[in-house]
């Protein structure tokens, strides 16, 4: 049986891991490779590194960091935040990234999804979608949740799949950072609607939230940041809890 995946997410700023709430109030908490290695030992199934650096040196810095991660980490990892063009994707692939995650860049240029999927395969491409509920619809946001687009969540999720996304990482901005559980209803709708894996993000606060997102939310993987960074939930304990509740996990 295919196991449900537990994925710690590490936000990276200027080469350091940072964490904030609802995309703001960032705090530095350590080295990306050390953190990744520790999570791998704890039983994390994959890692997501999201680079939020906005300087000109970003591209060079990120390729160097990705190479260092690939050399040292023995589980798959996804890199997000550095891809605006096909060449960026290629640079991350050759630095050793297993997958890349794209978000704002494909909202502005959806054809980039087709290009990346055709060049490097769908398995290499995660499309991240940030959305917020307002006036009866789920509005997709770009630029780290700062700019609302005219896209609707479910339509956009279908489009990215049709264009060749290998996985969808859905973050409910309403749930992110507030630790009251994932957006299970919407996640289940996306999971039922599309034949590709769905990674749930935003809202994890307790082990029950993970159980809920794998049952009610029908997610294939669950991503979280602060509950792991601040040791509020230990990955081995979480996996044992899930296993005892009949969820297939890798222990």
């Amino acid at each position: 049986m295919l196991a449900k995946r537990i994925i710690p997410c590490l936000d990276v700023l200027d080469g350091k891991v940072v964490k904030g709430v609802n995309f703001i109030n960032l705090k530095e908490i350590g080295d990306p490779v050390d953190h990744g290695a520790w999570y791998s030992e704890q039983g994390a199934d994959e890692l997501v590194y999201l680079d939020i650096t906005a300087t000109h040196e970003k591209r060079k810095l990120l390729a160097g960091l990705v190479r260092r991660i690939a050399e040292n980490i023995n589980i798959p990892f996804t890199v997000g935040g550095g891809v605006n063009h096909l060449q960026d994707a290629e640079a991350l692939l050759s630095a050793g990234a297993d997958k890349i995650s794209v978000n704002s860049a494909v909202l502005m240029n959806p054809a980039l999804i087709d290009q990346i999927a055709k060049s490097f395969g769908s398995q290499f491409l995660v499309v991240a979608i940030d959305a917020k509920y307002a006036d009866g619809r789920w509005v997709v946001y770009r630029n780290g949740g700062r700019i609302a687009t005219d896209r609707e969540l479910f339509e956009w999720a279908s489009e990215v799949w049709m264009r060749g996304a290998g996985e969808i990482l859905f973050t409910s901005m309403d749930h992110d950072g507030v630790k009251t559980g994932y957006a299970c209803k919407e996640l289940a709708m996306i999971s039922d609607m599309l034949p590709i894996p769905v990674i749930a993000s935003g809202g994890a606060g307790t082990p029950e939230h993970f159980l809920e997102v794998f049952t009610k939310g029908k997610a294939d993987a669950a991503l979280a940041a602060s509950v792991f960074h601040y040791n509020e939930i230990s990955i081995p304990e979480l996996k044992n809890y899930l296993k005892n509740n009949n969820i297939t996990v890798r222990i």
Binding site: M1, L2, A3, R5, D45, I75, P76, S122, Q123, G166, E167, P195, I196, P197, D220, A221, R250
Partner: peptide, 29 residues
Amino acid sequence: GKVPHMGWNALEGLSGGLFEKVNEGTYVY
């Protein structure tokens, strides 16, 4: 099922030297 088959799955029916000291049910990516 969802395609690609992506993630960790268990190994069964292991035989031969490639799986020396690897237990049945071990998860691989």
